[in-house]
Amino acid sequence: MKYLCLVWCEEGQFEALSQEERDQIDRDSLSYDQQLAGSGHMIAAEALQAPANSVVVRVRHSEVSVTDGPFAEAKEHIGGFILIEARDLNDAIRVAAGIPLAKLGSIEVRPIYDFGGQA
């Protein structure tokens, strides 16, 4: 089964770290990505830019509206994600617990909806 591990970060949390600490997290994250590739769990992983760089798109009455993120004032935002293939929810939880950023923020494990097509 596929699961999306969403990495939730608190605003300013990452910025509050020293450069050295940030470098360490980057190294650990890359190394964990490699480990997940080796164990066959990894499908895709990306880090996201700050929410300040995001826009929100809506279509209402056939009209496209683009605004700054209404989530800008939210205290937590998604800092990145890892899409994995895991045996089951507990396997996915184990993988999520190993994500280095789990020590700083929190990881939401979301099962991917299975439309029942291909396995």
Binding site: M1, R87, D88, L89, N90, I93, P111
Partner: peptide
């Protein structure tokens, strides 16, 4: 059921009509 019989968390949840996160938390 999970560790010895090899059922997945989701299969156990389905059998006991319990949400998978509940079963997963019990195991954790």
């Amino acid at each position: 059921l999970r560790e010895i019989c090899g059922l997945t968390t989701e299969e156990i949840a389905h059998a006991f009509l319990t949400p998978a996160p509940t079963i997963a938390q019990r195991i954790v």
